[in-house]
Amino acid sequence: MTIIKLSYLIVVTMIIKGKAHKFGDDVNTDVIYPGKYTYMQLEPKEMAIHAMEDICAEFYKNVSMDDIIVAGKNFGCGSSREQAAACLKYAGISAIIAHSFSRLFFRNAINFGLLAITHPKASDFIQQGNTLEIDYKSGIIRTKGSEFSFSPYPELVQGILEAGGLIPYLKDKLTK
């Protein structure tokens, strides 16, 4: 086990291992987490049920804990809603590899302790259902005997990820 679950706070350790779920370009926040739920303060379990609802009904049923989304360009475009990152994490997604991310989704993912890795080559190579291994500290994605390297996150971002998100990170910092 490489990820320790603490009441929906996923603390990322060295290596993530999961199955790939492939998506295309411009997957927007409205299909990831529809606006009609955005101002309801739903519990994590309910949020997970709505993940990807408008493009992939019952997505959560096909996700095993630690699975990985692999997508095209501009993943998470649209709204600033943080629940787009949160619902995926609650559904069991541990990381997203994409050609590119919308800047808001990227920030929200990190701030929610969800790995977001920009890697067009890996994204093209990986197929639906492939098993992946991400060593995020060394910056390596392994799948089917191939390796793809990426620049590890800067120290600040690693700190936020390791704490499980911005709020726990800041809580720790302000307490010290």
Binding site: L166, L170, L174
Partner: peptide, 12 residues
């Protein structure tokens, strides 16, 4: 735009 956690962080 920024996320909700970030607004909470700026408030603090």
């Amino acid at each position: 735009g920024i996320g909700r956690s970030e607004v909470a962080a700026i408030w603090a």
